[in-house]
Design a binder for these strands. Sequence first.
RNA 1: GGGAGUUUAGCUCAGCUGGUUCAGAGCAUCUGCCUUACAAGCAGAGGGUCACUGGUUCGAACCCAGUAACUCCCACCA
Length: 785
Amino acid sequence: YAWEWKEKYGGIILEQLKKLGASCDWDRTRFTMDDELSEAVIDTFIHLYKKGWIYRGIRMVNWDPQGKTAVSDEEVIRKEVNQKLYYIRYRVVSSEEVSSELSSAGSTTHHSPLTTHFLTIATTRPETIMADAAICINPNDERYVHLHGKRVLIPLINREIPVILDEYVTMDFGTGCLKVTPAHDLNDYELGQKHNLPIIDILNDDGTLNEHAGILVGEDRFAARKKIAVLLEADGYLEKVEDYKSQIGFSERTDAVIEPKLSMQWFCKMDEMAKPALDYVLDGTIKLIPEKFVNTYRHWMENVKDWCVSRQLWWGQQIPAWYLPDGQYVIAKTREEAFHQAKLLTAHNSPLTIDDLKQDEDVLDTWFSSWLWPISVFDGFKDPNNDDINYYYPTNDLVTAPEILFFWVARMIMAGHEFRGGAPFKNVYLTGIVRDKLGRKMSKSLGNSPDPLDLIEKFGADGVRVGMLLCSPAGNDLMFDESYCEQGRNFANKVWNAFRLVKGWEVDKNHANNNQVAIEWFRSRFNEALNQIEENFAQYRISEALMATYKLVWDDFCAWYLEMIKPVYQQPIDGETYDFTICFFEDILKLLHPFMPFISEELWHDDLFGPRAGYDCCIIAQLPTNGQINAQLLAEVEIVKQIITQIRNIRNSKQIPPKEKLALSVKANSTIDYKKYEAIFSRSGNISALDIVNNKIVGAVSFIVSTDEFYVPMNESLDPLAECSRLQKEKGYLTGFLQSVNSKLGNQRFMSNAKPEIIEIELKKKADAEAKLKILEENLSALAC
RNA sequence: GGGAGUUUAGCUCAGCUGGUUCAGAGCAUCUGCCUUACAAGCAGAGGGUCACUGGUUCGAACCCAGUAACUCCCACCA
């Protein structure tokens, strides 16, 4: 990782070291990688060179004239700056030269002879006119049809340049005439390439004008700008000057204005490598998760440009190119080999010595070593058939950030194909970017990134981890907020408290187990959740897997299961229930471990779970395997839970304390055997007795769950009016619901078009609603209202 | 300018070939409880014109078209 970021931070590290007073020639100190990686990088470079995929070419770099170095894109800071837009006249050369006085050029608005013999361009950089290679106009621009095929003279130096046509020029910006300066602007360079224009570089490395400029030689670019404006003005070439705001790049280190500068660089051809790398992703050999990145990836790969692999830095792998004094070069692994090759290039009796060779001072792009990572990390270059690489290549999952999908991931795929003949991994999981609550990227300059150690101090390592994972929905950025960590801490606390409860139980082996239903229910519920969690993991939905685990532990295990089996105060628990509970708890620890490694491991080794052998650790414990699910039991317990909720509601609304026992009578219309759940009603609902009845009970609070009727007798008499309005309200809702179902079923086109199972569901909805309505009406009439 | 994506409850997000997972989850909020594991808790409750407009369909959060806002990547304007 240090290597990966060296390009970005290498300079900063050097500065710091210098400040500390380290004494050596830092500017000439190279930081290189370990020998084996270094060798692999050089070998692959040579390999690609021999295939003809490495070549030298011209590229525009960001040049810092003050630091006299090239700077990377990340080190260029763009700022909005007030500038001047200079409107400059160029004289059109024509056969019928009209001699006219330039000095009285005040009236250009109407058709004076001037407008036909001059064209006007707008530029923020008048000092570069000496580097102009052409004037470009849009072929569709009707204003300038008369200029097609003409030539113009650059003011002051009177060099003749052509007028070229290209749709690149926007007609409504400036004057519609663009000066083309291939040496000092990237777009102009490309335009120049397209139209075969000469490249005239008028700037020295320190930003002063060189002899190619012809005038103002030796002046700094900004001084030259002012002076040339004066000269143009004096000779009547300056039409006007406007204020103009635009973005300008500044060097991060020296704050100098960045100068685009053409330079020779090493390139790696991409088209032949991109094709197979694209295919791996399109044919599913490599899966990108989330899938949306496939589109981006394809777009990139189809429009890939050749990769500039050389960098003007001191830290990095030096390019294995060696120059002869005459400018020729050879590519070789060592100086000796280079010398050997170089001799072949020179005449027989050449005086060339090995010391005459000069190695290229540029280094390779950081990604030129990083793309080898999946192979080099297992020593796959030096020893291509070793056990590790055979086992780990291709690996299952690569987890990385989407912003380096192209820089790193795509290139690893290319390198994998080229150097090992296959994809380096099967799945790429792209994480989100961590942002703060306001959606801003976490960064040092904004100061909005919390210190992880502070967070851990506050919420615990598990709490912070859970917090991070809770807000990591698959494929989205994560909006980080401390409250998630708080939730994580609370969850860890909950687990701890559940442990304390179980730990405190007295066990009586002779006690009978009357918790079979609860135990069987939880086992089913656990298996159901396990399926769901596995499925979430398989789809890389980490936050959802966590939430499913969270709910299993908090709701099902703590809130329901433990409450169901919890022995009454100071009573022992039976041995069987206890043993099952310990097993469940242990399985839960295994599920929790990926999210909460510390607390789960800590509890794992407590003697509550029995003695552990030396290496019996939660981290390597096998996850529980899928077991049976009793679907009917699960469904029935859901109904039981609803009933208990209803009872709790009654307590709430009638201000009955939870400690006071209530009786419950059931008039079952379904086949559910409620007696089976009596223990649960008793423990979780504090129900004294469960009676199965065949008739309605008058004077009791009634409610309906599913299609069964429940009655809770009250000591005090009920307020019939309040009961009545409650039932009326429910009736109103049901009637409306039934109406909508009926209208659907009455619709001919629905009946003929909808799938049979949909119709069946609608029919069941209708039947259920009707049954409920019937009960409600009976209850209402019993209340006599 | 080119490309990709997002828009569902106060917040962060599910919603998997249009119909029981259809309007959901967690957090936050409100109400009542210091009930013997847990107030960092328990028990309840409220809360949404599924960005907007139109279309397709018996039926749209979901499909199509347009509009708006936001985000990211790449290229950057004389």
